[in-house]
Lab assay of single mutants.
Amino acid sequence: VTVHVNRYTYHFDNPEEAEKFAREMAKRLNMTVEIHGNTLKVE
C-alpha cells in the first residue's frame, strides 16, 4: 500500500496501518484522504 503526502511517498505492508497513517497526516495538515485502490493520497 502506498501513501502519498505532498511530494513524499510512504510504503506500508499493512493496509490498516497505511490508512491510520494517512488519516493522521491528513488531520495534522488539515487535508483529506483519497483512496484509489492500493494508493492513498493526502490532498
Results as ranks from 00 to 15, higher is better:
31 M>A: 14
13 D>A: 10
21 F>C: 05
33 V>L: 09
12 F>R: 00
23 R>T: 10
2 T>N: 06
41 K>I: 15
9 T>C: 08
43 E>R: 13
10 Y>G: 00
10 Y>I: 05
14 N>A: 06
5 V>H: 04
1 V>D: 01
37 G>D: 06
38 N>K: 05
37 G>C: 05
30 N>W: 04
34 E>S: 15
24 E>I: 07
38 N>D: 09
14 N>Y: 06
32 T>I: 15
2 T>K: 08
5 V>Q: 03
35 I>R: 13
37 G>F: 06
30 N>S: 06
32 T>A: 09
36 H>Y: 13
11 H>S: 06
1 V>T: 09
43 E>Y: 15
15 P>H: 14
40 L>Q: 03
27 K>G: 11
15 P>D: 05
26 A>Y: 02
15 P>W: 15
20 K>H: 11
32 T>R: 13
4 H>G: 02
21 F>W: 07
13 D>V: 09
26 A>T: 02
43 E>N: 12
11 H>W: 14
41 K>S: 11
6 N>R: 05
5 V>D: 02
5 V>G: 03
39 T>Y: 09
10 Y>C: 04
27 K>V: 11
12 F>V: 00
14 N>V: 07
19 E>H: 13
3 V>M: 02
35 I>K: 13
20 K>Y: 09
29 L>E: 06
40 L>K: 02
30 N>T: 03
31 M>D: 02
37 G>T: 05
34 E>F: 15
38 N>A: 09
36 H>K: 11
28 R>Y: 09
4 H>S: 10
18 A>P: 00
4 H>V: 15
39 T>G: 06
30 N>D: 07
28 R>N: 08
18 A>T: 00
27 K>I: 13
9 T>W: 08
18 A>N: 00
41 K>M: 12
13 D>Q: 10
5 V>F: 10
27 K>D: 14
30 N>E: 06
26 A>P: 01
26 A>S: 04
3 V>K: 01
21 F>E: 00
14 N>Q: 06
33 V>F: 05
33 V>H: 01
26 A>M: 03
43 E>M: 15
11 H>I: 09
36 H>M: 12
24 E>R: 08
33 V>G: 01
11 H>K: 07
12 F>N: 00
18 A>S: 01
1 V>H: 09
23 R>H: 13
13 D>Y: 07
28 R>M: 13
22 A>D: 00
43 E>F: 15
41 K>N: 10
27 K>E: 14
2 T>Y: 11
43 E>L: 15
41 K>L: 14
28 R>I: 13
31 M>C: 09
9 T>Y: 09
15 P>A: 13
5 V>K: 02
39 T>N: 09
14 N>W: 05
12 F>I: 01
18 A>C: 02
28 R>V: 10
7 R>W: 10
19 E>M: 15
7 R>S: 14
33 V>W: 06
27 K>S: 12
39 T>R: 06
41 K>V: 15
2 T>F: 12
11 H>Y: 14
27 K>Q: 13
37 G>K: 06
14 N>G: 07
7 R>I: 09
4 H>K: 12
39 T>K: 08
12 F>A: 00
39 T>M: 13
20 K>C: 08
39 T>C: 11
21 F>S: 00
25 M>R: 02
9 T>E: 10
34 E>I: 15
34 E>Y: 15
7 R>C: 14
34 E>K: 15
8 Y>P: 01
1 V>A: 09
29 L>H: 08
16 E>P: 04
3 V>I: 04
23 R>S: 09
35 I>Q: 09
6 N>F: 14
32 T>Q: 10
17 E>K: 08
2 T>C: 11
21 F>K: 00
2 T>W: 14
38 N>T: 10
22 A>T: 02
